[in-house]
């Protein structure tokens, strides 16, 4: 199951909460303000690294660019809307709002 997160982890608990519900192997995609979670060396990098041990993690490139996020946590893949669609082809979707 694909989990999408669209809120900044600094203002909303969706990132920290969703982490408890992830099953091993579930991909996680950060979109919109959610992408602030993957900026390198922030308060949530350690939590993100824990997730990366068991789950593939993606961030929507256009949303990263829009927010000036150039350095992202190692292991996180930046994808385009096309890649978003490909993840949806492979997985049911759980959008944490």
């Amino acid at each position: 199951m694909l989990h999408t997160i669209n809120k900044s982890p600094f203002g909303n608990s969706s990132f920290e909460t969703s982490a408890r519900f992830l099953q091993p192997g579930d991909p996680v995609l950060f979109i919109e303000d959610g992408v602030y979670a993957v900026q390198a060396n922030n308060k949530f990098s350690a939590a993100l690294n824990e997730i990366l041990k068991n789950n593939p993690v993606y961030a929507l490139g256009p949303d990263l660019n829009a927010r000036g996020i150039a350095e992202i946590t190692a292991g996180v893949k930046s994808i385009e809307y096309e890649g978003f669609v490909e993840l949806v082809e492979e997985h049911q979707v759980n959008s944490w709002l």
């Binding site: 919109e32 385009e80 809307y81 978003f84 669609v85």
Partner: peptide
Amino acid sequence: HQASDTAYKFAKAAMKKGH
């Protein structure tokens, strides 16, 4: 909210891939 924009971009990308 960005939701309307993301939904539109997603819809366009999905249709482009034949969905």
